[in-house]
Each structure stands twice: as structure tokens, then as C-alpha cells.
């Protein structure tokens, strides 16, 4: 059913994202029939709320994957940025400084990743796998095994728990970031350069594009968004811990990007597609929750749904 709808979408409009939106609508319809409370406005906002951290990271990851790269460090970066914010606040009691420190840390780690990939020409999967280990180790040294309770009135927990016009602040952040990056990706020289590098790096280089800088910047963006996600997660649960962003975080993020129509080979993709992919994953896990599917079965179901959605897309658009 999902596959067929998805294919129809592909045939009708032939655009990445349309097959996915058809699947998304189908999925929402199925869950709504099985459990009418799914369509309740609070639940729908909740669906988006639960995927904001994944979504924010996926937006950054989209740039990296569009160059043909990959960033596996998002989980530990999420953890360490929460810790950096915590300790900066402990030392300075300044909210802006804490936020800046956290995002700066993520961007710096991204810069290291990017430099190793772009300037040393190392394979992204190896570089970021090694960095994953390094950052996690560093986080454990910095934060230790314990949960750090955010101090009362820290101010920045507003990011994770506050509401604006009845919608969580983190959801607004996600939406604003998605719109901003979608604009950058579609309408800026940098956006075209990112896609050009992924499509044909040599051609971009021979046409005078600063290929290495562009690649590095995509990892910086990805690191910064992972740090932002870490800030949000840490303030949502009022704690910072070196163990946040556990194994599997990066897989959800990458799955969302790929579901959204971005090619793992690079060159093709869009932020809007990624947002659809994130919502798709959110609807799947939220629907399974409402249906009281046990967590272990949920994992299996999620994996199968991802493969199903991807193969439906491969059927209409070829390469993934």
C-alpha cells in the first residue's frame, strides 16, 4: 500500500519528496483509522516535538551527504555540547556564553572532520568513525559517568521546555532552521557548490569552486546542528550526560536524510525532502507507540518500513 502510493507519487510528479509525502499521508491515515486519537492536535505537535533533535541534526547532515560525505559523530557531539553548555553555565552563569560554547564546540569538531576529509583526503566514514570514538571518550573524561543536573533557573532550559504560542520552542527552532537552510541550499551560491561537489567534484574544482572549503563547511554546519540538538535535548531533560546521543542516533539522522530523497552518492537532495523524511520517521514511531507496540518490535518495524520506503523510491527514481 505504502509502496504503491509512493510509486504513484513518483509517476505523477516525478519529484523527490512527492512519493514520500504520499507515503506519509497514507501512514497518517492508517494510524488515524487504527487509533483516532492519533489525529488529535496535541499528538500531532507531539510527533514533531519528539523528532526535533533528529530533525535539526538531519538538516545539517543533508549538506554533508549532498557532497557525497557522511558524518557519524553527531551522537557524541550531541552529548559533549550538552556538557559544555552545563559547565560554561556553571562557570559564567551566562546563557549566551553557554549556547555559544556548545555550538562552537560542535562546529570545531565539524571543522576537524571536514579538514581531515577535504585536506587530507581521508574517507569520511573512517574519519568520522574515529572522531566518534575520540569525542565520546573526551565527553566521558569531561562529564564522567554521572548525570549533571541543570541548576534551577538556568535560563537555557527554555530552549527545550518553553512554549511560544502554544508550540514548544524547540519545534519553532527546528522549523526556523529548516526554512533558513532550505533557502541557503536552494538559493545560495554555497548551496549550488555543495550539490556541485557531490555531483562531480573534479568538475567543480576545475571550474574554480573552492571544493575543500565547501566540504569543510558542510561538516562545520553538521557539527553545529548536532550541538544545537544537544543543547535542546539536555535542556529538555534538565540534565547533561556523556552518554546522551547513544549508538543509533546517527542512524536515525542518516535514515531521515536518505528517506527524504538525498542521494548517498551526493549531488542530489533537498532540505525540504529531509524534513519530510524526519516527519515520516516521527509518524512511524509515534504511531507504533499509540498502538502499544513493544519497543523491541518497534525497532524491527521501523527498519522494515525504512527499507520498504526506500525500495519504493528506488523503483521510481533509480539510484539512492
Amino acid at each position: 500500500m505504502i509502496g504503491r502510493l509512493s510509486q504513484l507519487g513518483g509517476v505523477w510528479l516525478g519529484r523527490p519528496g512527492f512519493g514520500l509525502s504520499a507515503s506519509l499521508i497514507a501512514l497518517v491515515a492508517i494510524f488515524a483509522i487504527l487509533s483516532p486519537e492519533f489525529l488529535h492536535i496535541d499528538n500531532l505537535v507531539g510527533v514533531v516535538h519528539r523528532v526535533t533533535t533528529t530533525g535539526i541534526m538531519a538538516v545539517g547532515m543533508t549538506f554533508v551527504i549532498m557532497t557525497g560525505g557522511i558524518d557519524l559523530t553527531v551522537g557524541p557531539v550531541l552529548a559533549i555540547s550538552g556538557l559544555v553548555a552545563f559547565f560554561t553555565f556553571e562557570g559564567s552563569a551566562s546563557v549566551p556564553l553557554s549556547v555559544l560554547g556548545a555550538i562552537g564546540t560542535g562546529a570545531a569538531i565539524g571543522a576537524l572532520n571536514g579538514a581531515a576529509v577535504a585536506y587530507l583526503r581521508l574517507p569520511p566514514i573512517i574519519v568520522t568513525l574515529a572522531m566518534l570514538s575520540i569525542v565520546r571518550g573526551t565527553a566521558l573524561i569531561v562529564g564522567g559517568p554521572i548525570l549533571h543536573q541543570l541548576p534551577e533557573g538556568a535560563g537555557y532550559e527554555f530552549i527545550g521546555t518553553g512554549f511560544l504560542f502554544g508550540v514548544p520552542v524547540s519545534v519553532w527552532i527546528f522549523l526556523a532552521l529548516a526554512m533558513l537552510t532550505a533557502f541557503v541550499q536552494r538559493r545560495s551560491a554555497f548551496g549550488l557548490e555543495v550539490a556541485a561537489v557531490g555531483d562531480n567534484e573534479r568538475a567543480a574544482f576545475l571550474s574554480g569552486r573552492p571544493v575543500r572549503l565547501v566540504k569543510t563547511l558542510t561538516y562545520v554546519i553538521c557539527g553545529a546542528t548536532a550541538a544545537l540538538a544537544g543543547l535542546i535535548q539536555s535542556s529538555q531533560v534538565y540534565t547533561a550526560s556523556a552518554n546522551f546521543g547513544e549508538f543509533g542516533t546517527e542512524l536515525d539522522v542518516i535514515a531521515a536524510v536518505v528517506l527524504g530523497g538525498t542521494s548517498l552518492q551526493g549531488g542530489r537532495g533537498s532540505i525540504l525532502g529531509t524534513v519530510m523524511g524526519v516527519l515520516f520517521l516521527g509518524v512511524v514511531s509515534s504511531g507504533l507507540n499509540i498502538l502499544d507496540v513493544p519497543v523491541d518490535v518497534q525497532l524491527i518495524a521501523k527498519g522494515l518500513i525504512i527499507v520498504g520506503a526506500l525500495s519504493a523510491r528506488a523503483g521510481t527514481q533509480g539510484q539512492i
Binding site: 549550488l192 550539490a195 556541485a196 562531480n200 573534479r202 568538475a203 542521494s263 549531488g267
Partner: peptide, 11 residues
């Protein structure tokens, strides 16, 4: 070495 094959003529 020359073309962005997945991109448009304009790009």
C-alpha cells in the same frame, strides 16, 4: 571532468 550530470543546463 566537466559536467554536473545530475544538474540542469543552467546550473
Amino acid at each position: 571532468d566537466g559536467l554536473l550530470l545530475a544538474h540542469s543546463v543552467a546550473d
